[in-house]
């Protein structure tokens, strides 16, 4: 049995219907355990105090903001190469989720930045890249919404996703380069993974797992919705033709 069987919309809905409750339950459990553990059962950081605990929202959402785009890129490639409709619709379904993750990462970053850096926003390369990523998400979503024909929209957005990915990477390097000219990058950016001690690390892993599962569950759910909406359009069009 091949993975491509789930490219059939009906099979996809049937299969995801079975796993969705488990996925959602597991995601919820991970998030509850991870967040409670992180918020209440870890010591305050000696330098940052309790503000450090926003890391349990910030890092996982940032992780999914980038991986959400990567998932869209893979799904777009699958659509271009193999023309599986579920793949195109999954990419469409993932975009708003990824965009929200980006907003969460930016918002939590700003809230964290205020006490730590004394400012909500600094044109730090990492922050700036996320802002640009958000703009890419917006453009992608807007293009899907603007094109009426589903297959045309899938083709156009897939190519936009491909080209956008290249330019997103270019922007990342450009921003890194651009920022050096202004100030030393190190003073404002703290490398999270290196600084984090084990006590913080384990609940963070649980939270990251929770966010990954949450993302997958949301994408499955939204893909189902997209498939059903598409089926509705096909039925309506058929009725009009008959």
């Amino acid at each position: 049995m091949s993975l491509w069987e789930y490219a059939n919309p009906v099979k996809f809905i049937r299969a995801t219907d079975r796993v969705l409750p488990w996925l959602a339950g597991l995601a919820g459990a991970c998030l509850v355990v991870g967040l409670i553990w992180g918020f209440f059962f870890t010591p305050d950081d000696f330098r940052q105090g309790s503000t450090v605990k926003i890391i349990y929202l910030h890092v996982p959402s940032a992780l999914m903001a980038i991986n959400g785009w990567l998932m869209m890129l893979v799904a777009s490639l699958v659509w271009i190469v193999r023309r599986h409709h579920v793949s195109a619709l999954a990419a469409r379904a993932a975009a708003p989720v990824g965009a929200v993750m980006t907003v969460i990462a930016l918002a939590t970053g700003a809230i964290w930045g205020q006490p730590m850096w004394g400012t909500y926003w600094a044109w730090d390369p990492r922050l700036t890249s996320f802002l640009i990523l958000f703009l890419f998400y917006l453009g992608y979503i807007a293009l899907w919404a603007a094109v009426e024909n589903d297959d045309t929209a899938a083709d156009l957005t897939s190519i936009l996703c491909l080209v956008g990915s290249v330019f997103a990477v270019l922007s990342r390097y450009a921003v890194n380069f651009w920022n050096q000219g202004l100030h030393q990058g190190a003073s404002l950016s703290l490398d999270k993974e290196e600084n984090v001690a084990d006590v913080f690390y384990l609940p963070l892993l649980v939270c990251m797992g929770g966010f990954i599962l949450l993302f997958i569950a949301l994408v499955f759910l939204r893909t189902q919705t997209e498939i059903r909406a598409r089926r509705m359009r096909v039925l309506l069009a058929r009725e009009r033709m008959a």
Binding site: N8, P9, H85, D150, D151, I227, R231, V234, L235, R238
Partner: peptide, 12 residues
């Protein structure tokens, strides 16, 4: 009717 293998058929 929807052509076999077309998008329409896949969604019905």
């Amino acid at each position: 009717r929807p052509a076999p293998g077309s998008a329409e058929e896949a969604f019905l």
